[in-house]
């Protein structure tokens, strides 16, 4: 079979769309208008296309769209919006963790995925969780600061 209708959810919205077998999730999401998911390399090197699938961060460029049938996808725009940003998004903006912003959607998704599993990560755990997200502008310093601030807020001020 080379084409079929797939049902899946993106940012709490149901989609049913006909997709060829070779389409990646990245291609499908962007074609559906989720252009907050960025394409930086299409081979899993840069992490700009990261999305959450049932809460776990994956590179959408390495994922065939058919394989997410029936699953729930969250892109960075699904975490919050400018009127009501997700606390992590607010922390990134406030800490200057964003420069050109092209890596940001992926970095925030990877950070969120980390914090959902490890609410109080060490510095090394933060670095490890973000090692698949390349950033060429910030030098990562303020990204670490933003994630740490988030941890601090959530843990009521206790940092490991």
């Amino acid at each position: 079979m080379r084409e079929k209708a797939i049902v899946f959810e993106v940012n709490e919205r149901q989609h049913c769309t006909t997709i060829p077998s070779h389409r990646t999730l990245l291609e499908v999401l962007r074609a559906l208008g989720y252009v907050d998911v960025k394409c930086g390399c299409e081979k899993g090197d840069c992490g700009a296309c990261a999305v959450l699938v049932d809460g776990e961060a994956i590179d959408s460029c390495l994922t065939l769209a058919w394989t997410v049938e029936g699953r729930a996808i969250t892109t960075v725009a699904g975490l919050g919006n400018s009127n009501n940003p997700h606390p992590l998004q607010a922390a990134f903006a406030r800490n200057g963790a964003i420069q050109c912003g092209f890596c940001t959607p992926g970095v925030i998704i990877a950070s969120e995925s980390l914090l959902r599993k490890t609410p109080n990560p060490s510095d090394d755990e933060i670095r490890f969780a973000l090692s698949g997200n390349l950033c060429r502008c910030t030098g990562y310093t303020k990204i670490f600061e933003a994630v740490r601030e988030m941890v601090l807020t959530r843990s009521g001020g206790v940092l490991r």
């Binding site: 992490g47 590179d59 390495l62 969780a129 090692s131």
Partner: peptide, 12 residues
């Protein structure tokens, strides 16, 4: 596993 690729790749 601790030196394997990046998070998103490790997840799949």
């Amino acid at each position: 596993a601790e030196v394997f690729a990046g998070q998103m790749v490790r997840n799949v």
